[in-house]
């Protein structure tokens, strides 16, 4: 498990982001779309765990990023888009936490319930959809981040190296990449 700073310290350091125009996010969209399609193609079993929530809209709010993400894990047409924080977004479930905590949870290295207990993770809206998504992702062996980064070629491998440099506990997975 990763070391966690105190609750009070975590609340002190929440940033306030300026508005990011949609045009600046445009270069991210094809990359995000490629990521979500790859995961959907390689992990079809996760849709069974999502059950009726495969078409739900998950707003993923990494508090330390200047934009938000909207995920629709549709088995046929999965979508992942970056949106301005100022955008009016219609979603079923809102999941918020720090980027590091959300990534490590998706990667199976952080326990979602523990993040909730420590108030590092907040879910509003349809909780059942969020629980299904968490369970579906947690049932994937290994590191999703690693699979995704490696598939993105040289830039992805650089991104993975950067993740590894920030996560010393990753160890053998980094060596394997």
């Amino acid at each position: 498990m990763l070391p966690t700073p105190s609750l009070a310290a975590r609340h002190r350091r929440r940033p306030q982001w300026p508005h990011v125009p949609a045009v600046l996010l445009a270069p991210l969209q094809p990359l995000l779309q490629r990521i979500v399609r790859k995961v959907a193609r390689e992990q079809p079993a996760l849709f069974a765990r999502l059950g009726p929530h495969g078409r739900s809209r998950f707003l993923i709010d990494a508090r330390d990023l200047p934009f938000i993400l909207l995920l629709q894990p549709d088995p046929v047409h999965p979508r992942l888009r970056a949106l301005s924080r100022a955008a009016a977004v219609d979603c079923d479930t809102h999941i918020s936490g720090s980027c590091r905590e959300l990534v490590t949870m998706v990667d199976g290295r952080q326990d979602g319930d523990s993040l909730f207990f420590s108030r590092d993770l907040l879910i509003t809206g349809n909780l059942e959809a969020a629980v299904c998504l968490r369970n579906a992702l947690d049932d994937i062996d290994g590191s999703i981040m690693q699979h995704v980064c490696v598939a993105l070629g040289k830039p992805g491998k650089m991104l993975w190296s950067w993740f590894c440099s920030r996560e010393p506990l990753r160890g053998s997975e980094c060596a394997a990449a």
Partner: peptide
């Protein structure tokens, strides 16, 4: 059982 791989491993 409702927790995660990370919980179980640890």
């Amino acid at each position: 059982r409702q927790r995660s791989r990370a919980y179980v491993s640890s």
